[in-house]
Design a protein around this nucleic acid. Structure first.
Lengths: 214, 214, 214, 214
DNA sequence: AATGAATGAGCATTCATTCAT
DNA sequence: CATGAATGAATGCTCATTCAT
């Protein structure tokens, strides 16, 4: 071996340091919210020091904003990998709902960050120019399905892609975001494996029926 | 007259002081979350002093818990006023959805408190014995609709009241809780008066179709 | 003895606590300037804690402002004790110069605070409504001397009280404020007891000659 | 041509870099004082980097000391250009006062640096061997005037050049250093163009009368 | 000669909470 | 029942300085 082993691998690799901070911050913010998160705790989750957080990100709120942006970017880019163009419209719609439902469940921290941001009334999202650029793709995909379905007669002509997206999002998001309060207040069996399969199917059917031409 | 005339009427009236604190705290917690809320700020919204908060409620977290309980109690009691027993099942269902959708919109602070509590993973709700007693009524009402509908053949026999309630809640809750992030990311017109009317109707149809016997 | 001796005499005496903080802060600010002063160090000079500084004064800059105000108030009130009305105008003028010269020497910390404030371009003084009220008295006294002197023919009719005050202040202030740099650069004997007596006399003569009717 | 063409001309030229740093530091120190000045801010005012400041000047305090020395050197060399030997003693004295008064007004940053150094009790000046060598010239000039005046009978025999210099300096320095506090406390009109002309004349007369043989 | 990255010690300030009357 | 005063333990952030190349 010619390589000298060093304890601090990332040294002199600013991008790695920043990525490391961002990841640690994402966890801390998702866990405790903007006000609840502790910069000291973020630093502790890091391979670097608190000082570097300020060196690269300025202050807590800027760091939070960048965490939020990064979370949106990552989630949207994963969604973009889903190719629905080869499926018949209603099959594509079902696949989209299933994917979205599952994807939300698999990204709890993203859900939590969005919840937290909504507690802050979307203030930081509104200040971010990136968000506007990264989100439209989600709508475009559903617009494509609607357009194809209206052409081949499988989807109603008066359907709104935005409304459809809203319904898919509401079910998929709420399913994760409110499972604590909902589970406590009502029925925890909804959040078992079987319960989740049923809610997933319920969501699929509700969305498809809302779109299908009678 | 049994009332002793005092200049400061609300003083010497522990219950009024407590109610005043609870109302002030509800606003502060709804606005800023559990960690974001400031005890000083709650005291400032109050007609009494910070010291009294500790006198009556012990600490910040206990106060928060009581605010949460009070919020649930109030909202559920308003819901209880809705009488659906005289309507045919599907009409009752529609009315229930409309009511729920509107009621959520009208109680933003309650929605915010529930969001906040979910950020805290329902920890305080789980510790509260009151919640379990106060919530089942919401399910009972929908169970009644389903039972009546299954009897008269208007509602499918395999429908689950819990799932139906979940779908109604998801749409109604998300519509309020996520309107900031959703509006910024996608389309703000969904949250205009017209947009809301359409989403309300979309929710009604989706729920009714999910329940209706084909 | 019926009185229990307590270590913290000033407890429950907010005004004493505030005065104690103000005195400690005056020393620290005079010694190190606004930026150089350390809140921890002020607290250490105090019989109370750092927390109380913030409790009563809000922040470092407000504390500094109040220290400045208090310093002006104290100095002006000491000056006010000087009664010159019974002396002939030129004798009164001499006595005023001597007093001012000595008073500046005796109040080095006040001089230092004023120097520091001038480094900050008088920003905090300008924000203080008190200063405008407390200072005019210094001018009024000299105006009175001039008026009396112009009446009895001992003082020139074109003399300006403001200019005279400026000259007295310049000599008296500079004598204290710049004695370090001046002593190092030129002659330290100016700042010995004898040297100071001569500078005091020089100032008296210069001011009197500037005012005396030829 | 002996000059090597480089894109970054001032680089590779250590003296230019140092001069650039010194100029930037002078401004920052004059503006904010020793403790108030920020090394980052000095670097930002520079055409080079923060690292170079430490490379060439060691630390903040050494840089400050050099700024101070440079300021004294520059001011004294400007003063040296004033040739008074051809004028009659009292005319020379008047010209010296006028020049000093004007020169102080024209070099506010120097005044500020001297104020700041006096706040630090002349500590850095005392450590600098250069100051002692550079300053005596100011005294020599006034000694020359006095000597000539005593010879021709226009200046009193008991006059002290050091005291005279002190009086000139006091008026000229205070006029700039304390114009903020003095203006706020008393009369801002003293610092208008007309006001300054009057104070300049007042200073001239006071100094000349102090020196003139009766 | 020159520099972007890194850092420890310190700094002003805030927060929930308790004391003493 | 009521309250102004008091407080320890953080908390976010800054500063002059040095490392590694």
């Amino acid at each position: 071996m010619t390589e000298t082993p060093t304890r601090k691998k990332w040294k002199q690799d600013p991008e790695a340091v920043q990525a490391n901070i961002l990841a640690a911050a994402a966890e801390e913010f998702a866990e405790h919210g903007l006000t609840g998160a502790r910069v000291d705790e973020i630093a502790a989750r890091t391979r670097t020091s608190k000082r570097m957080i300020y060196y690269y990100f300025g202050d807590k709120e800027s760091l939070y904003r960048q965490v939020l942006e990064e979370a949106y970017r990552k989630v949207r880019s994963e969604e973009a990998a889903l190719d629905l163009t080869s499926l018949p419209p209603l099959d594509a719609l079902r696949k989209l709902v299933e994917f979205t439902f599952d994807h939300h469940r698999a990204n709890e921290n993203f859900i939590r960050l969005v919840m937290i941001e909504n507690v802050h009334k979307g203030k930081h999202l509104a200040e971010s120019p990136l968000i506007a650029r990264v989100n439209p793709s989600a709508i475009e995909r559903i617009e494509d399905i609607c357009a194809r379905g209206q052409k081949d007669g499988s989807i109603r002509s008066d359907v709104s892609p935005h409304e459809l997206h809203w319904l898919i999002s509401a079910a998929s998001f709420f399913n994760v975001s409110n499972r604590f309060s909902f589970g406590i207040s009502f029925n925890k069996t909804l959040f078992t494996h079987d319960g989740q399969q049923k809610l997933r199917e319920l969501t699929c059917k509700a969305v498809i029926e809302a779109a299908r031409k009678p």
